[in-house]
Design a protein around this nucleic acid. Structure first.
Lengths: 84, 84
DNA sequence: CCCCAATATACGCGATCGCGTATATATAGT
DNA sequence: ACTATATATACGCGATCGCGTATATTGGGG
């Protein structure tokens, strides 16, 4: 499993979407687990301009994921989730 | 210190604060770089209940940091450091 | 083509954002 | 101790959050 690097909301959203699908969950099911509306999950995954940080944290927890903060690595540019 | 794991807003805030200090910046200086008020930076670092995700992303960029999303490691938070 | 599940959008609502600004409380320095 | 800087809190403001709910719209399976 390659490291999923995120530097933007969109990249983060894309990672979350993939993780959710890999877990075999729909947005509604995921939302139910953490008391988030399906629509809110949708916006989070879409990389909406301004979601609450708390929403991200909850989603990560529900998907059994964690964050690592580290200095930006120059070599990793190719691995970065490209938003487009 | 290269890799810091965050599962909560508070942990994330603490990491950001350390990174900022290590960069020799005050909250005001950091805020000026990314057009965030000093007070907003304060709330972010304090792990406020609901900060905008965008605020986090901006701060990470200003500190030349990036996020890695990965499955939670089973090991206790203490020795995850060398897990990967 | 027709359904139905999944996802994307939208409404009013109360709460909270970050802004601009200002102040009160730490935390050093000398 | 005094002072200067740094950080934490607070005000009104417009904007946007997520909620609850409902409705488009998309995407596959038969």
């Amino acid at each position: 499993m390659p490291q999923h690097i995120a530097r933007t909301e969109k990249q983060l959203g894309a990672i979350l979407r993939r993780a959710r699908k890999q877990a075999g969950l729909t947005q509604s099911e995921l939302g139910k687990n953490i008391h988030l509306r399906q629509g809110t999950v949708s916006r989070l995954e879409a990389g909406a301009p301004a979601v609450q940080l708390h929403t991200l944290i909850e989603a990560l927890a529900a998907l059994d994921l964690e964050l690592v903060v580290r200095p930006r690595s120059k070599a990793s540019a190719a691995d970065i989730e490209s938003a487009f």
